[in-house]
Amino acid sequence: MIQTFAFYLFSALVIASATLVIMSRNPVHSVLWLIVSFFNAAGLMVLVGAEFIAMLLVIVYVGAVAVLFLFVVMMLDIDFAELRAGFVKNFPLGMLVALILAAELIMGLLAYSAGGLALGTPDGANAPLLGESNIENIGIVLYGKYLFLFETAGIILLVAMVGAIVLTHRGRKYQRSQIVSKQNARRPEEATVNKQPEVGKGVEL
């Protein structure tokens, strides 16, 4: 009973907040609704017994990615009139994306109704390998069976990161960067001079 209730609560909140992501006028509100939606999706993950994925969803998406989203969106100078002006121009593209997503949704439902999808249970009884917690299961699959694919994914990410840095890095010619060890090694005696000038004569440095 409580599981059914929790399922409908979480899924209703996911759908409602996802709708509000695209409906709200203010982009910051959109990001905040997106966070609510992620969070409730994590709740659904817990319900199907994938607590590790749920925690990762919160840590990675809510804790890091969405913060960076919010970080960028908060600094936007939002012009609401301009936001609404592009409606007619962007309408065909938007419809195309909507059609693709709807097709994917229908495909997914068809695949599900074809059977063969067994969801887990909260106590991990249906877990694929050991009947143990799904941290161990994921570990065994990821670092055993799919080790090379996992490492390939890691290398692709590394390449992407290096690429992003190379593309955005502009080495300036006369860059004055601080060298912290040099700063810390400086002592007052090297940086200051003690002088006792005669009155009215000034100081020669």
Partner: peptide
């Protein structure tokens, strides 16, 4: 729960909001 430490990490990452 058996992901207790991850839960703490998740919640503490929320506190920035």
């Amino acid at each position: 729960i058996n992901v207790g430490l991850l839960y703490i990490l998740a919640i503490s990452s929320l506190s920035v909001y």
